[in-house]
Design a protein around this nucleic acid. Structure first.
Length: 271
DNA sequence: CCGACGCCCTGGGAGC
DNA sequence: TGCTCCCAGGGCGTCG
């Protein structure tokens, strides 16, 4: 599932691959995923040039030469692939942007939870983005992090994944960071000591940077913009490892459900 | 403010 | 081999 490191990897790929290209057309076979409508998007961006690609939280923003912006959320199974026009159809491709230079930007999404959304201008974008908490690798300081933790008694894993409090962290990196910091995912955030908060802050930064370094984690669906898998799954310490040996203490990794999400931890190490 | 739950959706695994 | 059933889960909405 694309989280901050996966979305950032795709953003960097797209910055290299599609900036400067002209939009020749757009098609879809899944109209509900194109907002407000295919016709509106087609009218707004056909003939424009892609100026830049940015990311905030798990949202990719594509800026066009006429000031219009498209934001993309990949949710669980979304992919943004840059292909040659003649390349074979991708699995689950639903939105196809025809680009100059014989290229195509394809949005593929098995689950169909993801979306493309046209925005009028920068102002509309800022209105959406201001609802998100700080970026863990850019703006989230230790004091701010400690304040976020102390502000709620919800389980600390839920807090890490709460996009309004901290942006970009999803299930994989939350699990991995809590393991590194040796903190039980169920622990009420405000009951954490300063020391535990600092360890978690450092662990979170560490796993997110590693995720970017390894070009993301590919469980079943994630691919970068060229269709390649990432490598971070080869470095998972707890995620998806239920029943296996803990890599730190030789206990057994357990899987529980927390906030309706699969949660993996070592009951011996994480207190 | 909070937690619980349903919904969107479909591939893939389990069970028979 | 093939059928049916059910679950995963990010974000959002609703309800109590």
């Amino acid at each position: 599932m694309p989280e901050l490191p996966e979305v950032e990897t795709i953003r960097r790929d797209l910055a290299k691959l599609i900036v400067g290209r002209k939009v020749l057309g757009i098609e879809t076979n899944s109209p509900k995923q194109v907002q407000p409508s295919l016709e509106m998007v087609k009218k707004a961006i056909t003939g424009t040039t892609i100026k830049k690609v940015q990311r905030r939280a798990k949202i990719i923003q594509i800026f066009f030469s006429n000031g219009k912006i498209i934001i993309v959320h990949l949710k669980l199974t979304g992919r943004l692939l840059v292909r040659k026009k003649e390349d074979k159809i991708d699995d689950w491709q639903h939105i196809m942007l025809s680009l100059s230079g014989d290229k195509e930007l394809r949005f593929a999404d098995s689950r169909k939870f993801g979306w493309f959304r046209l925005l009028k201008d920068e102002k509309e974008l800022q209105k959406i983005l201001k609802e998100f908490g700080p970026e863990p690798l850019d703006g989230l300081t230790l004091p701010v992090f400690q304040k976020i933790l102390s502000s709620t008694s919800r389980p600390v894993k839920i807090v890490l994944m709460d996009q309004q409090r901290i942006s970009g962290v999803g299930n994989i990196y939350a699990n991995e960071a809590l393991f590194l910091a040796k903190i039980d995912p169920r622990r009420p955030a405000k009951k954490m000591t300063k020391q535990a908060g600092e360890k978690l802050y450092q662990a979170l930064e560490k796993v997110l940077r590693a995720g970017i370094k390894y070009r993301g984690a590919s469980d079943q669906y994630y691919l970068d913009a060229l269709g390649h898998k990432g490598f971070y799954q080869e470095h998972f310490l707890v995620y998806g490892r239920q029943g296996k040996r803990c890599l730190a203490c030789s206990g057994t990794i357990k899987r529980i459900s927390l906030g309706g999400r699969g949660t993996f931890y070592c009951p011996q190490c994480q207190k």
